[in-house]
């Protein structure tokens, strides 16, 4: 999932009885499964939490261009190059829809960038890991897009209309990405021993960071409880992680790969896998900015923004001139 540990502002989830009439009416609409639209009244906490969540998701899409972009120039065939280009282009498009969805809540894209660049806003921990071989491109599609889908499919039913609608469009493309990623790996495991080893190495490195994407267990989190009450989160992190493992392990088996978890075992009674915990210390270090690529990723985004200032200013200046010429023309005519 691309939004991890999104904070809400409240200290506890209010009951309907404790709410003022306006907030109560709002909560009742959410409980009845109605969508909230941009112009409607909403509690400030709801608005702020959504801005955090949607912008974090948007930032993840655009930072996510970088690890995959890293291999576009080295893609092994013209077809693979085209597929990867199209995928990364889709991710930029996802960023665009999501920034637009967040803008309906009264924040501008530039403000959101500012928050990303100064380190105030986060993006998914997963994109702070390096892409070291071509198999990593397959692994990202399969695991990272796969984990994103787990989280985003329920978000299609989220209470905030623009976010829910953006998700519908995005989910279609993410499942396409996942199949393409799997296909990259399926081809490689049928190839030479070196290719197969590359795929196993990619799974060894991406498995745990992928499980971390869902965030630590949030059964006791007030933030998650509030987000669930608002229906901007539908499942607990552990539920989603379990679903992901249950879906992914048979696919790893199909590819003839070993999931790097000695505790992984089918549990007949629960009808799902038992599995080990990721290294949460590592997760918190990555979130805090100490992952293997945090500095490079954020540095690349800042550099793109700073180096592009003259470009954006040039376009703005031209637009002003054109407008002046237009009004001058009208005045004369």
């Amino acid at each position: 999932m691309y939004a991890q540990m999104v904070k809400t502002d409240g200290a506890c989830v209010k009951s309907l009885e404790d709410m003022e009439p306006q907030e109560r009416a709002f909560q009742e609409r959410i409980d009845a499964g109605q969508k909230i639209e941009p112009k409607e009244w909403m509690p400030e906490g709801y608005r702020k939490t959504l801005v955090r969540q949607i912008s974090q998701h948007a930032h993840s899409e655009i930072v996510g261009q970088l690890p995959e972009g890293n291999w576009i120039t080295r893609a092994p065939t013209l077809e693979r190059k085209a597929i990867l280009l199209a995928k990364v282009q889709d991710e930029a498009g996802h960023g665009l829809y999501l920034y637009c969805a967040a803008e309906t809540l009264g924040i501008s894209r530039d403000e959101m960038y500012e928050q990303l660049h100064c380190g105030k806003a986060k993006y998914s921990s997963i994109f702070n890991y390096p892409t070291l071989s071509w198999a990593d491109i397959g692994a990202i599609g399969w695991l990272v897009d796969g984990a994103a889908i787990m989280n985003q499919v329920p978000l299609q039913r989220c209470s905030y209309g623009p976010y829910a609608r953006a998700m519908v469009r995005i989910c279609k493309e993410e499942s396409f990405h996942q199949r393409q990623g799997f296909d990259v790996l399926a081809k490689m495991v049928k190839g030479t021993p070196a290719q197969k080893a590359m795929v196993q190495d990619a799974l060894d490195r991406w498995w745990w960071p992928s499980l971390m994407m869902f965030g630590p267990s949030d059964d006791a989190s007030v933030h998650s409880a509030q987000s669930m009450a608002w229906k901007i989160k539908q499942n607990s992190n552990d539920e989603l992680r379990q679903k992901f493992v249950d879906q992914t392990v048979p696919q790893a088996d199909y590819l003839g790969l070993t999931v790097p978890d000695p505790e992984l075992k089918w549990n007949e009674a629960k009808g799902g896998y038992d599995f080990g915990q990721p290294d949460w210390k590592e997760f918190f270090e990555v979130i805090a900015g100490n992952g293997p690529c945090n500095a490079e990723r954020l540095g690349a985004r800042r550099k793109a923004w700073d180096d592009g200032a003259w470009f954006r200013e040039g376009l703005a200046a031209h637009a002003t001139k054109a407008e002046q010429r237009r009004t001058a023309g009208q005045a004369a005519g």
Partner: peptide, 18 residues
């Protein structure tokens, strides 16, 4: 394609990739 993710605006990233 070397520009991917490094363009001065999101719209330009999309257009260049296209």
């Amino acid at each position: 394609s070397e520009w991917c993710g490094h363009a001065p605006a999101l719209e330009e990233d999309i257009a260049l990739a296209n």
